[in-house]
Amino acid sequence: MMRIRAVTLVGSLLGAIGGASAATLLIERDEERVSFETSELLARPDARQIPIPSDVGYGTSASYRAIPLSALLSHLPPSPGRTLETVARDGYAAQIPMELAYQDAPGAARAWLAIDPDDAPWPALPGKQASAGPFYIVWERPEASGIPTKYWTYQVTTLRYVPSPASRWPGLAVEASLPGDHPARIGQQAYVTQCLPCHTLNGGGSSTVGPDLNIPMNPTQYFQPAALRRYLREPASVRRWPDQKMPGFTPRQLSETELDALIEYLAHMAKRSPD
């Protein structure tokens, strides 16, 4: 059972009201797929309680019944050169490098699949009406490998092996003639990590949680530079709307150097819009 400080009572109330329903997790490799039920995953011999001192989803310390992500993926190993795409109920889709998904060296960051138990469902996420269930990618020692918060995918339904973003969506790429150390190239990687899970760009991407960032216009074309920086740090300080999902990026999540590079990338891509 997961225990979260200050929200355990909420979780208990939610369980008393309705309880979680059994869920199915899919792993996909091209046309092949395997599936796992909640009860099946909880009964695995490698399932154990994992303490998470700084949980990204709930914003506090937590403990989850979980299994090593690498062990789960071994049931349908990836093809060479693939990336792990974690797909959530709302369409959020993070692209996790396979070497991180399989990493299990002592002292390094390690990914786990946390499982929402049927008999003691997790509480709602802060500011949301649903929990992080049915499945949630959590990380031990994320600071050891610089794991970005975008790799903590909650409400997971599917794990699939896909080509790398650069080969899958060529429209994300900067002009080939740019020098290797050009800030826009660094910004492209920041975009793939931080923005691609929710947005498409030039139609490239598998999530439409947010709008396309280059069609019909690029943010650098309708934001003043200072406003764009402020918007990326704290969206609600610039504009508000009823179903606001856009999170801000703290300096810890996106350094000033990375933020500069991301804006440079967006400005560069404004010139490469198919519109």
Rank of each mutant, 00 (worst) to 15 (best):
A23N: 11
A23M: 07
I27Q: 08
R33T: 12
F36G: 03
A43K: 07
R44M: 03
R48M: 09
R48K: 14
I52P: 08
Y64I: 00
Y64F: 14
P68W: 00
L69Q: 05
L72H: 09
L73N: 11
P77Q: 02
S79H: 02
V87W: 14
G91A: 09
Y92W: 08
E99Q: 14
L100M: 09
R110D: 00
A111V: 02
D118L: 15
D118F: 10
D119W: 14
P121W: 01
A124G: 06
A124D: 04
S131M: 00
W139H: 10
R141L: 03
P142T: 06
E143M: 10
K150D: 01
Y151C: 05
W152Y: 12
P165C: 03
A166S: 15
A166P: 10
R168H: 14
G171Y: 13
L172M: 08
V174T: 15
A176F: 03
P183Q: 05
A184C: 12
G187I: 12
A190S: 15
V192P: 15
H199G: 08
G205H: 07
S206F: 07
L213S: 06
T220W: 06
P225V: 05
A226L: 04
R233Y: 06
R252H: 10
E256F: 12
E258Q: 13
L262E: 03
I263F: 10
E264H: 15
